[in-house]
Design a protein around this nucleic acid. Structure first.
Lengths: 230, 230
DNA sequence: AGCAATATGACAAAGAGTTTACACAACCTG
DNA sequence: CAGGTTGTGTAAACTCTTTGTCATATTGCT
């Protein structure tokens, strides 16, 4: 097993250690750096296979550093996963724009982190490709984060957007409230399952005026499903 | 609703009672133990679905006990949530290191505790694999929870769906009403055997318009059978 | 025919999902 | 930095389906 080398750039030592331990456990080889300067030194010595980069860094911010790494020929192929404490969509967008291949929101479980790392390493390329998801006349553009029906943009909240994006990329399949919480809200969020109902409602309400609310279907006793079939 | 069994290992009785009350309220079944020794006895009797483990225990410390649980084959699959009074990052690191799946810092709200327990339990099970069961033109797709005949979706209630799924995965074989109750309704459910007749009827009714009701056959004096043979 | 085993239709309680309302926090913005 | 706007999660009221049972009709067997 030739283990992959991962460089962690994170100023808070406890967090760094926690991550470090978790990832070593998962079979990775770890290098640590507290800021961009240190990181540069380590990179000069040996190129890591993947970089875990904290959003907030003393000195050069994480996002700026990511940009810089993606500019350098030497380092631009290295996948970057951003660590961020904020949950705003905006941050995610910016993070991805800066060249990050994925982002993980703190607090995260070691398991989740390891899973994302493996996923990113596996695909090699950036996953952030823009997509246009379609279902009948309903379009969702991941690049612009917009949803439209027949050229008509429709109002939709952040959570509803994520919910819809998830549904549209996993159609014709039932998801329990619990699964939706894990996959749309994130696996380390503690929310009532009933809350899903409410957001389903909001999503349906947003789709309703355009007559596409039937795409979100209730499966009694099982969960919800996105389907173009009646 | 088969409630999950949770084992609380906590030496301070008032806290234990508080947690106990909160979780029973949340619909869990609770077992209590004051230390690792007692816990071992309870585990020997019946495996809990999740363990709540106090960080500080008299005798074997919580963290050591967690490690031990994660070593034993019998118990290593059981998720553990650590209860800790301290807030130091350091503790969190150690807690996770010891194999805990999550930790909660005292003082915590009952709601938070219940939510995290649910979240951890949710992750547990392996995702049920998808199957497409076929019988002549009759299709049952477990991923989308749908039943169709020649591209035509058909209406079917939850119980009828489960019944059909069971039949289709165990065809050409007679099951008594009692067996069906056990395997479709679940063991330890108190329902009249005649109730099965009613659901068989409902299932047949759903299949009828598509001409597949003959698949559900009555075996007088024995039970029912799903068969594609006449 | 006579008896026992099923089939069926109706019904009321329990249950699951839907909606509305509200509190709160994060955020604009003048 | 007030004062409004959003976005979220929770709670509670409300709706509508599902479900278990009964009473009654049918069917199958000897």
């Amino acid at each position: 097993m030739n283990s992959k080398r991962i460089l962690i750039i994170e100023d808070e030592q406890p967090i760094r250690e926690m991550i470090c331990f978790a990832l070593e456990n998962a079979g990775f080889e770890i290098q640590e750096a507290a800021d961009a300067r240190q990181a540069q030194v380590m990179i000069a010595e040996a190129l890591p296979d993947l970089i875990l980069l904290d959003w907030m860094l003393p000195g050069l911010s994480g996002i700026d550093y990511a940009r810089r790494l993606k500019k350098e020929d030497l380092t631009k192929e290295i996948p970057i996963i951003m660590l961020t404490a904020r949950t705003q969509e905006e941050d995610k967008v910016q993070g991805l724009e800066s060249g990050a291949d994925d982002y993980v929101t703190k607090p995260f479980s070691p398991r989740e982190l390891a899973a994302r790392i493996k996923a990113v390493l596996r695909r090699g390329g950036p996953p952030a490709e823009d997509e246009i998801l379609k279902a009948n006349e309903l379009l969702l553009d991941t690049a612009s984060h917009r949803v439209s029906v027949a050229e008509r943009l429709l109002e939709i909240g952040p959570t509803e957007y994520r919910l819809l994006e998830f549904f549209m990329s996993h159609p014709e399949r039932v998801y329990s409230r619990g699964q939706l919480l894990d996959r749309v809200w994130g696996s380390n969020v503690y929310v009532e399952e009933r809350t899903v109902d409410v957001h389903i409602r909001r999503l349906r309400k947003a789709l309703e005026p355009h007559g596409h609310d039937a795409l979100i279907q209730t499966v009694r006793g099982a969960g919800y499903r996105f389907s173009t079939r009646v």
